[in-house]
Design a protein around this nucleic acid. Structure first.
Lengths: 273, 273
DNA sequence: GAGTGGTCTAGACCACTGT
DNA sequence: CAGTGGTCTAGACCACTCC
C-alpha cells in the first residue's frame, strides 16, 4: 500500500516483483501466459535489464514463474499442494500385502494419494547393483562395501509431466537375491509395493521411521521435478525395520518443496480415569 | 575434476562458487572466518564484481556463508541438524501432564530435544487477542471472526543467538478464558507445556496431526532464524483434537530448513499368524 | 573516512528457440 | 533469421559498520 505521498523505500526490483506478483495472483497474468520479455519489462518499468532480472529471480524463488531459455518466461499453474499421508499409508500398504493379487492390482499407492488411475500414470524404474558407502552402510547397519540393490523410480501423470516424487531405494543385495524377480526392473511397478516384495522373502515389517528434511535441489532434481533451482525440495528418508530388528530397506523420497505437504497423525493414549 | 586439457564449460561464477565451497569444506576457510571482500575476490579471480556476487549468492543459498551489510561475508558454522522427534514428543508431553509440578519443572520440551538446561535458554513470549481469519477459522473449525488467543514464542540458547523454532499458536479465546493464568504471557514458560495448560481447563487430547511443508522464509523469519532469504524454512502445522473431537489448538512451528530434521516413527500392527 | 555489501545502469556476447 | 533468457563487464551511488 503506497500512498501518493510518502515514498516506497524498498528496492525498485522488489517493488517490480511485488507488482508482477499481484498481477499473477489477481489472474491478470493467467497461468501458462507468456510474460513480457525482460527487455520489454525494462522499457515499460524504466529499470535496467539487470534490475528486471532481479525482480524475475524473486518471482522464480516464489515459484510463480518458470523461465525457459530462448522461449520466454511463463506464469506457472497455481501450486496446489499434494498431500502425502505417510502415517496411514504405511499401515495401509502392510494390510494390502495379504490380499490376493487381483485385489492388489486394482489400486496402488500413487492412486491412493492422487486419485489418478493406473492408465494415467507413466512409470520409470532403474535397478543397479552398488557398494554401500559410509553413509548408506550406517543407515542400513551393514559394513561399508556391502553390495546393495539400488532402485530409482518415479511416476508421473501421463499428461502433466513432472513427477511428484523421485524415489531412491536401497536394500542389501543378498537379501533380495533370494527372489530373482525382485532384481528385475521390468517387473515394476510391483503390485503391492515394497512391503509385498519383502513378503515374498518371508519378511514382515515391524516399524518404519521417517526423517524429513529440506535442502536445495541438485540440478538434476530441479530438472526432473520441474522446479526452479532456488526452490527447496522436501526429502523423506524412510527406514524400514523388520520383526527381527533388522533394517531391510532405506529409501529416500525427494519431492518439490512448494507442491508437497506431508501429513503425520498421532493417536494419543488415554489417561487412566 | 577439470584436467589440464579440456575446458570447463560451466559459467565462471559457478566455477568460483565451487572453488570457494571446496575451500570451506576443506577447512581452508574456517567457520567464522571473514571471507575476502567482493572487490578483492574480483581482483584475484579476474571476474567482475557482478560475477563474484553471483558466486556468493550461490554460497548463500547453500547456507555456507552469511553476508552482513557494511561488515563483510563470513563463513558459517557447519550445519548440524537439530532432530525433532514429534512422534515420541507428543505422547511424552501427555504423560508428563499428570506428574506433579516439581517433577515437571525439571525438564521441558526444548531440553528434551537439545539437551540444554533451563539456565542456558532465553525465552520470548507474546500474547495477543485476534479475530479468526478465513484460514484459521477453517483450521480451528470455528466461525470466521471468532476471538482467538494468539501466542507467539521462541526459545534460544543464551550464548548462540538464533532460535531453533518460531512458534505461532492459536486457541479459541473463550476456551482459554476459563483460566486467567493462561492469558498471561508472563506466566510463560508454562511448566508442562500446552497439554498441561489445556489440562487445567479439563481438556484431554486424543489426537495430534502434523502437516509438514517447506517454503521461502518471510524477511522477518529469515532475520529471526538467522538464515539467508534464499534458504527455505520447514513448517509444521500441529492440530490438536481433544477427546470430544473438538479442535482445541492450531500451532505453526517455523524452523530453518537447513538445520532441522523431523523424525516420525510408525509402529506397524502385526499380521495374524 | 575508508571499507563493506546492496542496488542500479548501459552496454555486450552467448546459447537456445522459434520461423 | 530475430527474439529470448543466461552470462559478463566496468563502471556508479547508497546504507551501513568500524575506527
Amino acid at each position: 500500500m503506497t500512498g501518493v505521498h510518502g515514498r516506497d523505500w524498498r528496492p525498485r526490483y522488489l517493488q517490480l516483483a511485488e507488482e508482477l506478483r499481484a498481477k499473477i495472483m489477481s489472474g491478470e497474468l493467467a497461468p501458462g501466459t507468456l510474460m513480457p520479455s525482460e527487455t520489454e519489462l525494462a522499457d515499460t518499468s524504466g529499470l535496467s535489464r539487470t534490475s528486471v532480472r532481479n525482480a524475475i529471480r524473486q518471482l522464480r524463488e516464489w515459484g510463480l514463474v518458470r523461465a525457459e531459455q530462448g522461449r520466454g518466461t511463463y506464469v506457472r499453474a497455481p501450486r496446489q499442494r499434494v498431500r502425502r499421508r505417510n502415517t496411514e499409508r504405511y499401515q495401509w500398504e502392510k494390510d494390502r500385502v495379504l490380499l490376493d493379487e487381483a485385489e492388489r492390482l486394482k489400486t496402488g499407492a500413487i492412486e491412493h494419494d492422487t486419485g489418478l488411475t493406473v492408465d494415467d500414470l507413466k512409470f520409470h524404474a532403474e535397478y543397479t547393483r552398488v557398494d554401500a558407502d559410509e553413509e548408506m552402510a550406517a543407515a542400513l547397519q551393514v559394513e561399508p562395501g556391502t553390495p546393495l540393490l539400488r532402485r530409482v523410480y518415479w511416476t508421473s501423470s501421463r499428461h502433466e509431466n513432472p513427477p511428484l516424487t523421485l524415489s531412491y531405494s536401497y536394500l542389501p543385495y543378498d537379501l533380495v537375491a533370494a527372489n530373482p524377480d525382485l532384481l528385475d526392473e521390468s517387473k515394476e511397478p510391483w503390485p503391492g509395493g515394497t512391503q509385498h516384495q519383502l513378503h515374498t522373502l518371508g519378511i514382515e515389517l515391524d516399524r518404519i521411521d521417517d526423517v524429513v528434511r529440506a535442502r536445495p535441489p541438485s540440478p538434476d532434481e530441479a530438472e526432473l521435478l520441474d522446479i526452479d533451482p532456488g526452490v527447496s525440495v522436501l526429502t523423506v528418508r524412510k527406514t524400514s525395520v523388520d520383526t527381527t530388528g533388522r533394517v531391510v530397506e532405506v529409501a529416500d523420497a525427494v519431492m518439490p518443496g512448494d507442491r508437497t505437504e506431508l501429513v503425520y497423525s498421532h493417536k494419543l493414549q488415554r489417561w487412566k480415569t
